[in-house]
Amino acid sequence: MLVSVTGGTGLVGSHTVAALVADGHRVRLLARDESTVDRALSPLGVGAGAVDVVTGDVLDELCVARFVHGADAVLHAASVYSFDSRRHREMGAVNVAGTAAVLDAARRAGAGRVVYVSSFGALLPARGRVLGPRSPVGRPRERYLATKAAAETVAREHQAAGAPVSITYPPALLGPHDPKMGDQTTRLLNTLRGRMPIWPLGGLPVGDVRDTAALHAALLAAPGNGWERVFGPGHHLTTRAYVRTLREVTCRALPTVYLPARAMLPVGVLAGLLQRVWPWHIPAEYGAIYTCACAARVDAGADTGGVTARPVAETFTDTVRWLHREGHLSARAAGAAGVRVHAGEPR
Rank of each mutant, 00 (worst) to 15 (best):
P136A: 02
P136E: 01
R139V: 08
R139A: 15
R141T: 08
R141E: 04
R141Y: 09
E142A: 06
R143N: 04
R143L: 11
L145A: 05
A146N: 03
A146F: 04
K148G: 00
A150P: 08
A151I: 05
A151M: 07
V154H: 02
A163C: 13
P164Y: 08
S166F: 00
P170E: 00
P170G: 01
A172E: 12
A172T: 14
L174G: 05
L174K: 02
H177D: 11
G182W: 12
D183T: 15
Q184Y: 12
T185N: 09
L189C: 02
N190D: 07
N190Y: 12
G194V: 15
R195T: 04
P197T: 05
I198Y: 02
W199M: 14
P205R: 04
P205Y: 02
P205K: 03
G207R: 00
R210C: 11
D211R: 03
T212S: 09
A213C: 06
A214L: 15
L215N: 03
L215G: 08
H216R: 11
A218T: 10
A221S: 10
A222M: 11
A222C: 12
G226E: 15
W227T: 07
W227K: 04
E228A: 12
E228M: 07
R229E: 01
R229K: 12
V230E: 01
F231M: 01
F231G: 00
F231P: 00
G232R: 00
P233C: 03
P233F: 00
P233R: 01
H235D: 02
H236A: 01
T239Y: 13
T239W: 09
V243Q: 00
L246A: 05
E248Q: 15
E248R: 15
E248A: 13
V249Y: 01
T250K: 01
C251E: 15
A253F: 13
P260L: 10
M264P: 13
M264V: 10
M264D: 04
L270Q: 06
